[in-house]
């Protein structure tokens, strides 16, 4: 299911999805049509622009949050023109924070990464745009200052939904080192340790968001 008010981009996205064996049940251009199409087609995944007609503010987000309240298992990836923490927070708060993604619109042009995100979300993951995470980390918060530079890097990657293996590969270190860092971070931030990477992400995001 695709909701995007720009015709060109909507077609481009539809082409992309088709190319990667997603079946596009409907491609719509505003929040009302999105709600109607979801009710009709019962899709597995909704990709929606946050800013859509008629209000051109956050119609897409409103629709997404509403849809997920009705059906917490509906996977939603929301695309945003700019980073807005409150958007990310509202989405994560809906439906238990699983099967949800919040990305900057520009990310769609990195086709393969974008598709990976879609698959992660459908599989039950939580994905938040790296820039959102960076901004959350950027805020001055006492416990965060206790973290070393390396630990902050690891924390950012954890919050993006990466597994220890992926983080190790990204930072070019051993997985054991990453596990140790993650343990230290969770301890310093008083977060309960989790093996499940998704719950770990949620814990970290919840921590970062609470102010």
């Amino acid at each position: 299911m695709l909701a995007e008010d720009g015709v060109l981009l909507r077609e481009g996205l539809a082409g992309l999805l088709g190319r990667f064996d997603f079946e596009v049940l409907a491609a719509v251009g505003d929040g009302t049509a999105l709600r109607r199409a979801v009710a009709e087609h019962r899709p597995e995944l909704v990709i929606t622009d946050i800013r859509m007609p008629p209000g051109l503010r956050d119609e897409g987000l409103r629709a997404a949050v509403e849809l997920r309240r009705a059906d917490p298992d509906l996977a939603v990836v929301a695309l945003s023109q700019y980073v807005e923490r409150s958007y990310a927070a509202e989405l994560l708060d809906s439906g238990g924070g699983r099967r949800v993604g919040y990305l900057l619109k520009d990310r769609v042009v990195d086709v393969e990464e974008f598709v990976t995100v879609l698959r992660q979300v459908v599989a039950g993951g939580t994905v938040v745009d790296p820039q959102v995470v960076r901004q959350l980390l950027n805020r001055q918060r006492d416990p965060l200052t206790k973290l070393s530079v390396r630990e902050r890097e690891v924390l950012a990657l954890v919050a993006e939904g990466r597994s220890n293996t992926s983080i190790a590969a990204h930072l070019v270190v051993t997985e054991a080192a990453v596990t140790k860092h993650v343990g230290n971070i969770l301890a310093k931030l008083d977060l309960p340790p989790h093996e499940d990477s998704n719950r770990r992400v949620l814990a970290v995001l919840a921590y970062l968001r609470s102010s």
Partner: peptide, 22 residues
């Protein structure tokens, strides 16, 4: 710019990304 050029540019870049894969 937002409704015109920016939108077209994202779409163009997306298509270039797709073309690359093929």
């Amino acid at each position: 710019l937002h409704d015109g050029a920016q939108e077209r540019l994202v779409s163009l870049t997306l298509r270039l990304g797709l073309a690359k894969l093929d």
